[in-house]
């Protein structure tokens, strides 16, 4: 009961906020929700399942492009295009992860980086299908009962994707499956010896989180009614990695904190210091890794823990 109230409350707040914000701030807000949703699923893949994949943004792009292409060029209705696009992302993710289960550590990073690069090359050279380097523009969501879905309503759609992603991942994180993922991350051989099917667990984690990325990408495609290659490129893939690590990899809260913080840094600092905020990102990354590998959430835990320990000591 308490949980239902908490989730309902969070959903209500996230859905009311966009209607209270001016247009520009509302746009910043919904794009932040997009990043948070991606960071949450990426945290499960990287922080909990221990797979350093750089293909997460490519899968968001696959979701976005597929749904738009199906709707505008194949004339598929939206309600059918959504499951088809998710299905395509799932099949591609399954193939990539099936091939990649033999690769560990940075080899997986290189293979998924190559996959992400290839995706961008295909988008750039896809001609009329993908719109080339300019991407696809000026398409629209169909009217629902004569009502145009746009602006804050899309923020609500993204908030729902985010909450669904979080609720689902929190649930499986606490299950047998989540523990199997953590066991593989910490020591694959030991996990196998304990009876965990390493290959299947890895493929499942990769496919599941990549489909979640595709889902977020799909909503994103209708924010500005445009999709273009740079959004889904390598730079953002690395940005996502930085968010999860700075916030605290392996922690759901950390992913949220990292994504919100880095988006706010960018949106608030860029007008004043220009490119300089990117330097801050690099410095933050190095400092976090050197000082507290568990990220900002870990630093917070340290501070609170020390205070508690201090209080305990103070009492004789």
């Amino acid at each position: 009961m308490g949980a239902a109230i908490r989730w309902g409350g969070a959903a209500l707040i996230m859905c009311v906020v966009p209607f209270l914000l001016p247009l520009y701030e509302m746009d910043v807000y919904r794009k932040m929700l997009f990043w948070v949703a991606l960071a949450i699923s990426y945290n499960f893949l990287f922080g909990i399942a221990g797979q350093m994949a750089l293909s997460h943004f490519a899968f968001a792009g696959i979701g976005a492009y597929t749904v738009v292409i199906l709707m505008t060029q194949a004339g598929v209705p939206l309600l059918l295009a959504i499951p088809l696009a998710l299905g395509l992302a799932g099949i591609l993710a399954f193939i990539v992860s099936f091939a990649a289960t033999r690769l560990e550590g940075f080899y997986l990073a290189l293979a998924t980086l190559a996959f992400a690069q290839l995706f961008i090359v295909i988008l750039d050279e896809g001609g009329a299908l993908t719109g080339g380097t300019g991407g696809l523009t000026s398409y629209k969501l169909p009217l629902v009962f004569g009502f145009e879905i746009q602006g804050p309503w899309l923020a609500i759609a993204m908030a729902l994707v985010l909450l669904l992603t979080l609720a689902f991942l929190l649930r499986i994180d606490r299950s047998w499956y989540g523990r199997a993922c953590r066991a593989i991350r910490d020591n694959g051989e030991a996990a196998a010896a304990m009876g965990v099917d390493v290959k299947r667990t890895k493929i499942m984690a990769f496919t599941l989180t990549s489909v979640m990325a595709a889902g977020a990408g799909m909503v994103y495609a209708f924010f500005d009614n445009t999709v273009n290659p740079p959004v889904f490129g390598l730079e953002n893939a690395f940005m996502l990695l930085f968010m999860v690590i700075i916030g605290g990899s392996g922690s759901h809260l950390g992913a949220i904190v990292g994504a919100v913080l880095l988006r706010l840094l960018q949106d608030m600092l860029e007008p004043f210091v220009g490119q300089f905020h990117v330097m801050g990102l690099g410095i933050l990354m190095v400092v976090v890794i050197l000082v507290q590998p568990k990220g900002l959430v870990g630093i917070w835990d340290d501070l609170v823990g020390r205070k508690r320990a201090g209080r305990r000591k103070a009492k004789p």
Partner: peptide, 16 residues
Amino acid sequence: LAPILALLGMLVIYHQ
């Protein structure tokens, strides 16, 4: 993994 990630951070600093 930690040195790989720290060097990624350094990459950003160098570039900027």
